[in-house]
Amino acid sequence: MASPSATLVHTLGHNTLGKTDIAVQSVLISIVFFSVGLRLWARRLRWVSLKLNDLLIIVATFFMVGRYVVEILMVVLCGMGLHSTEVAQVGGSEVLVQFNELTYAGDLLWVTVVALVQLSILNYYVHNFGQSTMTLLSYVMMGLCSFLWIAGLFSTAFFCTPPKRIWLADTPGHCGDRKMLHTGVNASEAILSFFVVILPIPSIRGMSLSKTRKISLMCIQVLGLAIVAIIAIRMKIEFDLDPEDPTYSSARKSILSCIVPLLGIILACLPTLEPAIQTIFGMSASPSPVHTSMYDPTFVRYWKTTVLSGRSLEEPEMPLVTLTQPFKAKMGYLAPGNIQVTSHWEIHSSRGSARLDRSPVRQA
């Protein structure tokens, strides 16, 4: 008899569910790499250093790659998508033990990736919405997500005592109620994800944005609600799993399990991609007014943090502005007057005026 791994690789030809699982994950993880790459590039285009939400997405992508490898091993080596009778007949009972081990690792990675994505989105809210209420609610939600992450991680890791009993049923010990565990974790994730998605909606409605921009932001919210719906469907499938045929019944759950964190990473990257997309398609940024009013949220936040508290804060992003004067007659010829204002607050004049050189502001 051929080795179990080689024989089960050969069965991939008629393993439709397994091939579908690998295909869906491969397409989505390619989009994830592209989205994260654009996100990092957009930060570089804006000359903005990486923040905590960027680092959390990078870590989440790293763990998602690990889960992607686990899923491929479950299909290729353990025959996920095939009936357990065929898997045991072809590969032996050891393959089912290996399947349970990989399922255990995949569940731990799933809980971790979902929590990292939620924390990244909430941290993005903190940095990009100046309202104190929004910031407070974001921090509260971050605390709840962190608590659920730790609770879900430990309850999954120590579902059986000892954990080895999860994949070796004849090991002395005891296990909890698997359906109750999965129902609790999935229901909590769905509820928290729902509130994470709808949290910025009141702030978005109050912003003075163009109709197109608001529609694009609302589409992102709809995608987030779709992810919440997928989590709920995943919870329903948990009840339909056949413990006597785990390799076949868990294939549909596996497809939904991979869609949730992968779409979550893409969703977290979408609001940050505007500079990169504008550069790719050669579009100029839409003109926005210079922040000169003391009632501007960015100005107020910067003033309170730097001046009143004496702490240092990275300067808010200011668009580069070029002010062009009409042509004027000067000393017998026409000379255009251009003033370029950059983020370093330097003033460059194409006229080379001596009055600017003698200005006390210029000398300072």
Rank of each mutant, 00 (worst) to 15 (best):
144 L>I: 10
167 W>G: 05
116 L>D: 08
163 P>G: 09
152 G>R: 01
171 T>N: 06
135 T>I: 14
148 L>T: 11
153 L>F: 15
142 M>R: 03
120 S>A: 15
155 S>K: 06
174 H>V: 13
118 Q>A: 12
132 S>M: 06
162 P>W: 07
176 G>A: 09
153 L>Q: 08
143 G>S: 05
144 L>P: 01
140 V>F: 13
159 F>R: 08
131 Q>E: 14
162 P>R: 09
139 Y>R: 15
133 T>H: 09
154 F>E: 07
169 A>Q: 10
151 A>S: 12
129 F>W: 04
136 L>F: 13
173 G>R: 04
152 G>V: 01
116 L>I: 11
137 L>M: 15
173 G>P: 09
123 N>H: 09
169 A>V: 10
130 G>C: 07
163 P>W: 00
168 L>V: 15
161 T>N: 13
147 F>L: 15
140 V>W: 09
122 L>V: 02
138 S>N: 00
136 L>Q: 10
140 V>A: 15
124 Y>W: 12
166 I>Y: 15
158 F>R: 02
162 P>H: 07
158 F>G: 04
153 L>P: 01
165 R>M: 14
172 P>V: 13
172 P>K: 12
123 N>C: 10
126 V>Y: 08
152 G>T: 03
149 W>H: 12
125 Y>F: 15
153 L>A: 10
154 F>K: 03
132 S>C: 01
177 D>S: 14
160 C>G: 09
168 L>N: 13
170 D>G: 02
135 T>V: 14
143 G>Q: 04
119 L>K: 02
143 G>H: 08
148 L>V: 12
143 G>M: 05
161 T>R: 14
176 G>D: 02
167 W>Q: 09
138 S>F: 00
116 L>E: 08
162 P>I: 10
177 D>R: 08
169 A>K: 13
157 A>K: 00
124 Y>Q: 03
129 F>D: 03
119 L>G: 00
138 S>D: 06
170 D>K: 06
178 R>E: 14
129 F>N: 04
132 S>F: 05
156 T>K: 01
146 S>E: 01
121 I>P: 05
155 S>P: 06
139 Y>P: 02
162 P>E: 08
136 L>N: 08
172 P>N: 11
170 D>Q: 12
137 L>Y: 12
163 P>A: 07
121 I>A: 04
133 T>Q: 11
168 L>R: 13
149 W>K: 07
127 H>Y: 03
122 L>A: 07
155 S>Q: 13
146 S>W: 00
178 R>M: 12
176 G>R: 10
155 S>W: 01
177 D>G: 02
150 I>L: 14
165 R>S: 06
128 N>M: 13
137 L>D: 00
122 L>R: 00
175 C>L: 05
132 S>Q: 13
177 D>N: 15
173 G>F: 08
167 W>A: 11
158 F>Q: 02
175 C>F: 03
121 I>M: 10
124 Y>M: 12
149 W>N: 05
161 T>Y: 06
121 I>E: 02
